[in-house]
Simulated scan of single mutants.
Amino acid sequence: MKKFTFPLLFCFILSFSCIEDQDPETICGVTDPLTNLSWLKTLQENYASDEMSEYNYIGQAIYEGQTVFYLASCCPNCNWQLITYDCSGNKIEEDHTLDDLDSKQTIWKSEDSECVFDE
């Protein structure tokens, strides 16, 4: 009986030691883009202090295989243009619409937001 106790105990301990901790998902090399990407944090602060902040929101999506962040508005009476940035904070100058973005998700909107999403 003792012959089997130590090998079983060893196998039991070994089986748990092989479990690796999973790193949290990273976006653009960080776990929280709004906090860790200074350029995005600055855009969010500016958007939050805008006089029509209740209509502003920031999203994250995939555009042409790359993670992007976009500034948008749900203002029903406004004419606005989609502004999109890459992970480095470079503005993407190509013409595109929200329909061109995949895997869209809202990552910030004001506390008094008027925007309603189907997410």
Rank of each mutant, 00 (worst) to 15 (best):
L82E: 04
I92V: 15
I19H: 01
F6H: 03
E93W: 03
S103L: 10
L9V: 11
C18L: 14
L43G: 00
D112W: 02
Y55A: 03
A72S: 14
L82R: 01
S110N: 13
L101K: 10
Q44G: 00
D118W: 10
V30G: 11
Q66T: 15
V68D: 06
C87H: 04
F16D: 02
D118G: 07
P7S: 04
L82H: 02
I58H: 01
Q81G: 06
N36L: 07
Q60G: 03
V68C: 07
F117P: 06
M1W: 04
E25R: 14
G59Q: 09
S113G: 07
T67H: 10
G65K: 15
T26D: 06
M1Y: 09
Y55H: 10
D23C: 07
T35L: 13
D118N: 12
N56S: 08
A61P: 09
L43P: 03
Q66Y: 09
N36R: 05
L37F: 05
N56P: 03
C11S: 08
D23Q: 15
H96Q: 14
S103I: 04
S17Y: 02
E114L: 07
F12D: 01
S49N: 10
Y55G: 06
C87I: 09
P76F: 05
V30A: 09
G29V: 13
Q66E: 15
S15E: 05
E45L: 13
E54Y: 04
L82M: 06
M52F: 08
D32T: 15
S15G: 08
T35H: 07
K41C: 04
H96R: 11
S73P: 09
Y70S: 08
C74E: 07
S49I: 11
P7H: 04
K109L: 05
G65A: 09
L8S: 12
S113Q: 09
F117W: 13
C28R: 09
T106H: 01
T5Y: 06
Y57V: 07
